[in-house]
Design a protein around this nucleic acid. Sequence first.
DNA 1: CTGAAAGCGCTTACAG
DNA 2: CTGAAAGCGCTTACAG
Lengths: 343, 343
Amino acid sequence: MRKKLSINDIANELHVAKSTVSFILNGKAKEKRISDELTEKVLKFVEEKGYKPSHLAKSLSTGKTKMICLMVEKISDYFFSHVAFHLEALAYKNGYKIIYCSTENDPEKTRQLIALLRARHVDGYIITPPAGVESEIRALINDNLPVVLFDRYLPDVATDYVGLDNFKGTFDAVELLEKTAAKKIALITLASDQTQMIERQTGYLAAIKKHHLKPLIFKVPFENDTETTIKQSMQFISDHPGLDAIIFATNYLALSGIKAINELGLAIPADIAIVAFDDHDVFNIYNPSISAISQPLDEMAKQLFKTLLDKLENRVSFAELSKVIIPPELIERGSTNSAGQIL
Amino acid sequence: MRKKLSINDIANELHVAKSTVSFILNGKAKEKRISDELTEKVLKFVEEKGYKPSHLAKSLSTGKTKMICLMVEKISDYFFSHVAFHLEALAYKNGYKIIYCSTENDPEKTRQLIALLRARHVDGYIITPPAGVESEIRALINDNLPVVLFDRYLPDVATDYVGLDNFKGTFDAVELLEKTAAKKIALITLASDQTQMIERQTGYLAAIKKHHLKPLIFKVPFENDTETTIKQSMQFISDHPGLDAIIFATNYLALSGIKAINELGLAIPADIAIVAFDDHDVFNIYNPSISAISQPLDEMAKQLFKTLLDKLENRVSFAELSKVIIPPELIERGSTNSAGQIL
DNA sequence: CTGAAAGCGCTTACAG
DNA sequence: CTGAAAGCGCTTACAG
């Protein structure tokens, strides 16, 4: 293993000051009025030797690591892993690397993660925050570390935010179902006071009210396993005969709900029409295919990264907060194809 | 924003040498025979001030970043994002952070990623390699950087490896289907020469041969989109009337295949029984539920991290390579529930 | 037990 | 245009 080249070695071999080499490497040759000739010579040498500057040393002197932290509820969730994929492309194109971690919606774990990442001096944070980490988020911002919250926010903390128009998502879903003659439309959601869940519920209630229907909400405990959710969904459906349609507030609730409907021997959409919040690969493949309120994943990643980068590169002042609300896309598929309609 | 404390500040305030502080902070107080009294005093002070040492500076002097790179085909894939989740827990528990990236199976992109991560001095690599990056992997190893390949390997490069017993997976699947009286069992796989795909095919062929059946393999082009795969699967199934059963070599092929079977108006498992390689949340929920050859995700992550850590911490010499082959679990569900059997 | 000093590999005023 | 020097915040022989 040959010794790694340092900027010192280059300066020595070429009989130049290392500051000169540093300037050239950082594209400041013109600015520092270094001769084209010398610039070329250094660049050529560097190219030949395959010299790669140590990011570590650079970070230590500049104070920038060019790393960002992606802290989501759970990296293996369909939504988060897809956002991660799109973010990756944007980050790498701009010279940033991403460290991911999962909060599992546990405030204590989240606090520890933030402390760990702070010790690593990441330049910025993209976070889906659980309730209870308000002061840690504030501390980040106080220390001039850019933070963009997404998917949900903390009502008491002023931050940059990128999220879906959740209200519109469920509102539109109700209207779609109502149009196909469904009158008894339920919402199955999580017992959670996360903002995105509240917005989804509010949108549902608003549309229900507008059409003079009766609201019917079932809240699944957050800590349920899949089995329990299926059982409880079955119970809920049995308890409410005449149910026309169900809107599920997350894609995993929908998956459990579909199972429940199947177990009860009911047909989708003939007996019960359904719409899921958050699209999923399998919804398109399922039989019948499942209508969904889709979050534009790439657009969301784009807005997230842009918001963060604006702060990281000081294109936008720290005090100037941005809220990006992305409209959902309602994708009609077989599960809302009412008996009386041809799609 | 108050100035961050450094080890220097602590040494000054406490009138101690900073080396002493450093030793205490690194748990070498005993070893260096520093008085308990002083040790306590420093620790208390550090605690009070909330001092966190800069990992950056530490990395620069030790040469270790305590970061590892997780380079997978695509971070948003079900299998990879789940492995990522399990790896995260292990890494954090051991003081490591993970930078992820996606090769998208493109050797050129992979080469660039490796170069970028090398410049970041990550301590070790977990990689699902595309063919064509043999020399870059060798270079990593030559430079004493631990590399563990997983899911697939490069036949020409000797490395640590963690993977599934793919052969056993398809072999067992064929035997299961054969037992339920299926005689015309096809394999739908990817046109790929990745090792895991070849092993799956080999396992299939071996079991087919053992039972004196006729092999029937359809290879889906790697670059297909979902629509095309569905169309081609339909074509394949139509072209082979009397098909009893299909084994899909990946879960996404299975999802497309299920769609194809539905479109053709065939029933699972009455007309065609199916088994998918790689489990998926939705297989349990689908109607009928889908039998799968499951990769134990947490076990795989555990073995991956252990193998890497052994090298990182020099518990195992560099020359000593480890191959961990994990047995798959065949999960029987409704899609292989043959008409003549009660499950 | 403790302190002074060199070193990790960069950047960036400052002086010429 | 270029060079000498300090600094980023740690670790770790080395000497006492």
